[in-house]
């Protein structure tokens, strides 16, 4: 994680040198605001990836959530009821994925790839293929400020803090890491691996739904085509933050830093007047660079470093005991 922080600081200082507004309070808030939706989704994805799972359908589920939310209040319905309904629907989809993955052992990649198209299509059907205006509603969800900071940023930070606490200080969090590290061993020990996986899907989908509502509230529109890149960006952020698709690794704080790095890079590109078509290329390069660095670290550890050092260290303290003669 340290290299990421160094990268964030380096990029910030460089860009600030070119243009003094980069590290100004407004731009920092703006940077966080840009990624708060991505951040909420990525936090949910962190849990899934730590458990050795994956959900590609979160992006279109978020879009669907925005469309349903906007449709509900179009004719003056209750905002709170719309939010509850949307979160409930998303949680149910998460539950469905979880049960299919844990119960029928379906690979989550394929399953949620199917879900991606399904949600996109439903969102288009409900919205009749055009953005649904949410007018002046949902201000508290997307546009209000608390202590001068926009609510989406608060939601993002709160979600990260809660997730970090859950992953570090609760039994469930440990179950998630155990399941992701070695599912069979965890199951045979008696860890409720199926339940753990299902819960991860439910949490992730619910967070995706919430993120979709926040995105909708920010632009006052439920856009069925909004944020199709979010799922891959979220996975990228988790991996940047130390997660591996093999499972057992990753943390909400790491993901937070990964998300911030992506945001700082995007913003720096804008500040340095780099043409926008380079954005995706830079995003790709950052990701590739990060995984290459991680892989080299792992390889070095396996071939030369930590393992033998540790092993020898332990062995030195290991005196072989042999049953003595009676």
């Amino acid at each position: 994680m340290a290299p990421l922080i160094v990268a964030i600081i380096a990029i910030s200082l460089y860009t600030n040198g070119e243009n003094g507004n980069f590290l100004g309070g407004d731009n920092l808030k703006n940077i966080l605001l840009q990624v708060s939706v991505l951040g909420i989704i990525a936090t949910g994805q962190t849990l899934l990836i730590a458990a050795g799972q994956l959900d590609l359908s979160v992006a279109t589920l978020a879009a669907l959530a925005g469309v349903i939310g906007a449709t509900r209040i179009k004719d003056g319905g209750s905002e709170l009821w719309a939010v509850v309904l949307v979160l409930l629907i998303c949680a149910l989809f998460g539950l469905l994925w979880g049960i299919l993955v844990a119960g029928l052992k379906i690979p989550p990649f394929i399953l949620t790839l199917g879900g991606t198209s399904l949600f996109a299509s439903i969102a288009l059907r409900i919205s009749k293929s055009s953005p649904v205006p949410a007018r002046e509603r949902f201000e508290w969800l997307g546009r209000a400020k608390v202590f001068g900071v926009q609510t989406p940023i608060w939601y993002f930070l709160i979600v990260v803090v809660i997730a970090a606490f859950v992953m570090r200080y609760t039994r469930f969090g440990r179950h998630v890491y155990a399941t992701g590290s070695n599912e069979e061993a965890s199951y045979l020990t008696g860890i409720p691996t199926a339940r753990t996986k299902v819960l991860c899907f439910v949490i992730s989908s619910t967070l995706a739904g919430f993120a979709g509502l926040v995105a909708m509230a920010r632009i006052s529109t439920g856009d069925p085509r909004n944020g199709s890149q979010l799922a891959l960006q979220a996975i990228a952020a988790v991996v940047l933050g130390g997660g591996t698709l093999a499972g057992g690794r990753g943390s909400p704080i790491g993901t937070f830093i990964g998300v911030v790095l992506l945001a700082v890079v995007q913003s720096a590109l804008t500040f340095n007047n780099v043409q926008t078509f380079w954005n995706d290329a830079v995003f790709g390069l950052v990701l590739i660079f990060a995984v290459v660095v991680t892989a080299i670290g792992d390889l070095r550890r396996r071939r030369f470093g930590a393992r033998p050092i540790l092993a020898s260290f332990i062995r030195r303290n290991e005196s072989v005991q042999v049953p003595s003669e009676k």
């Binding site: 570090r168 200080y169 609760t170 039994r171 179950h175 965890s186 020990t189 008696g190």
Partner: peptide, 11 residues
């Protein structure tokens, strides 16, 4: 970890 029931389990 598997057998316990207290939801909080600190490092």
């Amino acid at each position: 970890q598997a057998a316990g029931s207290n939801p909080i389990l600190t490092p």
